[in-house]
Write a protein that binds this DNA or RNA. Sequence first.
RNA 1: GGCGCUGUAGCCAAGUGGCUAAGGCAGUGGAUUGCAAAUCCACCACGCGUGGGUUCGACUCCCACCGGCGCCUCCA
Length: 555
Amino acid sequence: MSLAAPVVGPKTDSSITGSIRLYNTLTRQKEALVTVKPGHVGMYLCGPTVYAESHIGHMVGPVIFDTIKRYLVYCGYEVTWVVNITDVDDKLIAASRKRGISMFQVATEMTADYLSNLRSLGVTQIDHMPRATDNMEEIILFIEELIQRGFAYASDGDVFFDVARDVEYGQLSNRTLDSQQGEGGEAASKKRSSGDFALWKSAKAGEPAWESPWGLGRPGWHIECSAMSRRILGKTFDIHGGGLDLVFPHHENELAQSRCCHGQPMVRYWMHNGLMRAGSSVGKVGGRATKADTDASSSASTTPATADAPAIASDAPADVSTKISRSKGAGGLADQIEKHTGERIRFFLLRTHYRSTIVFGDEGLEEAGQALNSFYRLISRFERITGVKFFEGVEYPSRRADGDMRLAQAPASDLRQSISALRQSFLEKMDDDFNTGGAVSDLFELARTINRHVDEHKLEETAKRTPEHLASFSLGMSVLHELGAILGLFIKPPKKTGDDDSGKLVEDLMQLLIKLRADARVAKNFATADAIRHGLTALSIGLQDLKEGTTWERT
RNA sequence: GGCGCUGUAGCCAAGUGGCUAAGGCAGUGGAUUGCAAAUCCACCACGCGUGGGUUCGACUCCCACCGGCGCCUCCA
């Protein structure tokens, strides 16, 4: 008999389940999701400029978009998700000079860093990751079209977007041209107006350059997103996202380029995630020492590209936190992941709403980890009682419609009733602008409901178990799996300790101690039993006496 | 200065014009346990920055004020 819950119904049909609403930065309100192509969602997230290591702030967008895609797919949409890599830019050139390696090398290195961070946080749903340097033809073509349509002009090797020609300019960030205070940068003399921005920049000697109708040069910052999104997603697509700090100028300019080039809107829904701040009480951000700029030993472990960047908040008042950014020295996310694990960080991010500001710090991560552990304890409890492996043996519906049907067909019981209600509540929160923070609360309630079921029916005691109660238990765990998967949680077993030789030895030694203590307990020699427990406690090892034996864990 | 966000218990954090304001962490009491851990139960904001206003009724809408933050320059 398999305790794994059956997956009901055909794998998928094209019907969409649920009514999703999302906050649109452009209109500043929540709107119902109506896609360009029925049943399909095209979404584009602005990825990093790969000139230095990524920091935790770079992960907010990918994690929420990864979750959004999982949810949309769960609801029956076919989703194409694009994240670009900007691998040509002034900062990349500067980094390559500083490090004495090619721009290409810098980009390759930092892209690898970015990808590894994404993987650690369970961001696995990206379909396309186009690089700017692989799309030069498309970019140049785009610029030519803009010139032809009269929205851009060439000027001494550079090409600028003519902001004055676009009467709708400023809609996204809600600002008028008059209020622009841009100085125009060093290219000011070549511009018609200070608000004009570069589509193409002429190359100076020794800079990486591509052939173009305007001479050797490279693309401006915004054009690659317009060109690459059009190539992959079309002239108008559904969702465009990024950090709140990209609203202006990046997205405003992207939007202007694309709309003017095509005479139709670029995007239906603009989504922006809140920015992350670092609590200075943390002392470190992204693994960077607070005094990196004065302490040579601490900067030895950082990369040459950012080693002498100023530290964050090193002289700020103790209760102040500031935005995390690389220009302030953040980086070294890999160290944070090593310390806290990717899933914990992901859970930490999803506990709050994506549009709110998050203060990143050890206290919050610890707390998140504490909370996450309770789910893993439930998973162990399930495996112990049923003998079924949660990660390999519990099947769960990958589509909302299937999940609905499965629950409707399950034998009626109080547990099914409450599980069903919690699942419903969870999905309604997700429908409402992907409210993962609210949805997580239902996950906790679900875990508590399942634990209560196990307690009430004494499922820890072999003799008291009934097939009905075990089946209900499994159904609950399957729903936990189903909902967790939407958030990208509980998908893979956490990495095991004890896979190597020393781990094996520790395990054997622990079993020996547990055996000795068990003998002492049988003999009512509690002094010895307690001596073992307390001795292990001092080594940060906890023992749990269960009905079926004793387990141990590092604390 | 312009545009925008935000202020909910010790901490983190959802949320709604009107049932007892989710959930988590921490804490307290209880069940359970030789002890402990885990789990479960109970308790933990008569109030949602402050002061006004609208309303039959606001934490939720409006105004003012105070505090925190972001963008306006590169930034996820």
